[in-house]
Protein backbone atom coordinates (compact mmCIF):
# COMPACT_ATOMS: atom_id res chain seq x y z
CA UNK A 1 0.00 0.00 0.00
CA UNK A 2 1.16 3.49 -0.89
CA UNK A 3 2.96 5.19 2.03
CA UNK A 4 1.37 8.57 1.22
CA UNK A 5 -2.08 7.09 1.53
CA UNK A 6 -1.27 5.68 4.97
CA UNK A 7 0.36 8.95 6.03
CA UNK A 8 -2.82 10.80 5.04
CA UNK A 9 -4.91 8.62 7.36
CA UNK A 10 -2.51 9.28 10.23
CA UNK A 11 -2.63 13.03 9.63
CA UNK A 12 -6.45 12.98 9.63
CA UNK A 13 -6.37 10.97 12.86
CA UNK A 14 -4.05 13.59 14.38
CA UNK A 15 -6.48 16.35 13.40
CA UNK A 16 -9.27 14.53 15.28
CA UNK A 17 -7.00 13.80 18.20
CA UNK A 18 -6.15 17.50 18.49
CA UNK A 19 -9.81 18.20 19.40
CA UNK A 20 -9.15 16.31 22.62
CA UNK A 21 -5.85 17.97 23.44
CA UNK A 22 -5.17 21.30 25.14
CA UNK A 23 -3.89 23.99 22.73
CA UNK A 24 -0.28 23.60 23.90
CA UNK A 25 -0.45 19.80 23.64
CA UNK A 26 -1.57 19.60 20.02
CA UNK A 27 0.49 17.97 17.29
CA UNK A 28 1.15 19.60 13.97
CA UNK A 29 -0.43 17.39 11.30
CA UNK A 30 2.66 17.00 9.14
CA UNK A 31 4.71 13.92 8.08
CA UNK A 32 7.73 15.15 10.06
CA UNK A 33 5.82 15.73 13.29
CA UNK A 34 7.30 14.00 16.31
CA UNK A 35 4.72 11.98 18.22
CA UNK A 36 5.96 10.36 21.42
CA UNK A 37 7.30 12.46 24.30
CA UNK A 38 9.87 13.80 25.00
CA UNK A 39 10.47 14.87 21.35
CA UNK A 40 6.75 14.82 20.62
CA UNK A 41 3.79 15.69 22.81
CA UNK A 42 1.96 12.39 23.17
CA UNK A 43 1.85 10.61 26.50
CA UNK A 44 0.75 6.99 26.80
CA UNK A 45 -2.95 7.97 26.82
CA UNK A 46 -2.39 10.04 23.68
CA UNK A 47 -0.82 7.04 21.97
CA UNK A 48 -3.81 4.83 22.87
CA UNK A 49 -6.17 7.43 21.44
CA UNK A 50 -4.08 7.77 18.27
CA UNK A 51 -3.96 4.00 17.79
CA UNK A 52 -7.76 3.78 17.91
CA UNK A 53 -8.23 6.70 15.54
CA UNK A 54 -5.72 5.37 13.00
CA UNK A 55 -7.19 1.86 13.12
CA UNK A 56 -10.67 3.31 12.60
CA UNK A 57 -9.59 5.36 9.59
CA UNK A 58 -7.69 2.50 7.99
CA UNK A 59 -10.80 0.33 8.33
CA UNK A 60 -13.37 2.89 7.22
CA UNK A 61 -11.48 4.61 4.43
CA UNK A 62 -9.04 2.01 3.14
CA UNK A 63 -11.02 -1.10 4.09
CA UNK A 64 -7.93 -2.38 5.85
CA UNK A 65 -8.40 -4.07 9.20
CA UNK A 66 -5.32 -3.37 11.23
CA UNK A 67 -4.17 -3.96 14.77
CA UNK A 68 -1.62 -1.62 16.26
CA UNK A 69 -1.89 -3.34 19.61
CA UNK A 70 -0.10 -6.50 18.58
CA UNK A 71 3.13 -7.58 20.29
CA UNK A 72 5.22 -6.56 17.29
CA UNK A 73 4.03 -2.95 17.55
CA UNK A 74 3.88 -2.56 21.31
CA UNK A 75 7.29 -4.13 21.89
CA UNK A 76 8.92 -1.45 19.74
CA UNK A 77 6.52 1.40 20.51
CA UNK A 78 9.30 3.96 21.07
CA UNK A 79 10.50 3.47 17.50
CA UNK A 80 7.07 3.01 15.90
CA UNK A 81 5.51 6.11 17.46
CA UNK A 82 8.58 8.32 17.15
CA UNK A 83 7.02 10.40 14.35
CA UNK A 84 4.35 10.24 11.67
CA UNK A 85 6.65 8.73 9.05
CA UNK A 86 7.89 5.96 11.36
CA UNK A 87 4.29 5.04 12.18
CA UNK A 88 3.28 5.06 8.50
CA UNK A 89 6.26 2.90 7.57
CA UNK A 90 5.42 0.44 10.34
CA UNK A 91 1.82 0.18 9.15
CA UNK A 92 3.02 -0.40 5.59
CA UNK A 93 5.28 -3.21 6.81
CA UNK A 94 2.46 -4.76 8.84
CA UNK A 95 0.21 -4.82 5.80
CA UNK A 96 2.89 -6.15 3.47
CA UNK A 97 3.96 -8.82 5.91
CA UNK A 98 0.52 -10.38 5.91
CA UNK A 99 0.11 -9.92 2.18
CA UNK A 100 -3.00 -7.87 2.65
CA UNK A 101 -3.26 -5.20 0.00
CA UNK A 102 -6.58 -3.94 1.36
CA UNK A 103 -9.33 -2.57 -0.86
CA UNK A 104 -7.82 0.77 -1.71
CA UNK A 105 -6.35 1.73 -5.03
CA UNK A 106 -2.72 2.76 -5.02
Amino acid sequence: MNLDLITQQILDAIRDLNDQLPPDGRIEPSPDAALLAPEGKLDSLGVVNLILLVEERMANRLSTELSLTDDRTLSQSQAVFRDVTSLATHIQLLIESRGNLGGAAE
Binding site: V48, I51, L52, L53
Partner: peptide, 15 residues
Protein backbone atom coordinates in the same frame (compact mmCIF):
# COMPACT_ATOMS: atom_id res chain seq x y z
CA UNK B 1 -17.27 0.35 24.22
CA UNK B 2 -13.99 -0.60 22.62
CA UNK B 3 -12.12 -3.28 24.57
CA UNK B 4 -8.82 -1.87 23.33
CA UNK B 5 -9.53 1.43 25.09
CA UNK B 6 -10.22 -0.44 28.29
CA UNK B 7 -7.27 -2.83 28.25
CA UNK B 8 -4.72 -0.27 27.07
CA UNK B 9 -5.87 2.80 28.97
CA UNK B 10 -8.76 1.91 31.30
CA UNK B 11 -10.83 4.31 29.21
CA UNK B 12 -14.49 3.48 29.79
CA UNK B 13 -16.04 4.71 26.58
CA UNK B 14 -15.24 5.63 22.99
CA UNK B 15 -14.61 9.16 21.71
Amino acid sequence: HNPKLWYLGKIGFGA
